[in-house]
Amino acid sequence: MNVTTTRGWDEFMEGIWKQNPTFVMILGMCPTLAVTVSAVNALSMGISTALVLIASCGLVSMMRNVTPKEVRIAVYIVIIATFVTAVDYAIQAISLALYDALGAFIQLIVVNCIILGRAEAHAAKNPPIPAMVNAAGMGAGFTIGLLSLGVVREILGAGTLFGVSLFGASFQPWVIMVLPPGGFFVLGSWLLFFAWLERRKQRKLAETAENV
C-alpha cells in the first residue's frame, strides 16, 4: 500500500516538476503564449486542458487492450476531441465572456501535443488509475506553467491580478506585456530562471562530490 501511494505521488509530481510540460518539455507553446494575457484566462485554460487530459487518458487506458495498433492514433484523437467538445460546452455554460477570451484555443486543445503525447507514451501502456494520476500531474504542471506566465503578464501589463487592481489609478500599464511579444519575454525569463536553478543545483552537487 505504502509503496503504491509513494509511487502514485511520484507519478503525480513528475508532471509538475521533473517533466513540467511548459518549462521542461517546452510543449503546448501555442496556448501558453496566446492565452496567458491574464491570470484568469491562464488558469481556466490550464484547468480545461487538465480535465481533457485526465478524462482522455483514463478512457485511452481503459481501451488499451482492445485498441489495435494500426488505429490507435485515430482512437486517441476521437477520444480527445470528445472531451474537448464536452469542456467547450461546459465553458460556454459557465461564462461566455471567458469563452470569448479563450477563443479558438479551447477547440485547439484537440491538437495539443501534451495530450496526444501522454495518451501515446503513458496511458496506452498503463492501467487507468496510474494513467489518470500521471495525467493529473501533467495537467497541474501545465496549469502552473500557464499561471506563472499569466500572473506576471497581468501584473505588468494591466496592473491587476485576477481582475483586482494592485497599484491604483496612477499605474501606467506596461502594455507590451499583454501583447504577443510579452508572452515571449515572460516565457524566456521563466526558462532562464529554471535553467539557472538547475545549473546551481548541479554546481552544488559537484561541490559536495568534490568535498567527499
Binding site: M63, T82, T85
Partner: peptide, 24 residues
C-alpha cells in the same frame, strides 16, 4: 474498436450537450 469508441464518444458529447444546453 473504432465503432465502440465512436459510440462511447457520441454518448459523451450528446450528454454534455444536453446537460449544458439550458445554461448556454
Amino acid at each position: 474498436t473504432l465503432g465502440l469508441v465512436s459510440a462511447i464518444c457520441g454518448l459523451i458529447i450528446v450528454g454534455a450537450y444536453q446537460l449544458t444546453f439550458d445554461a448556454v
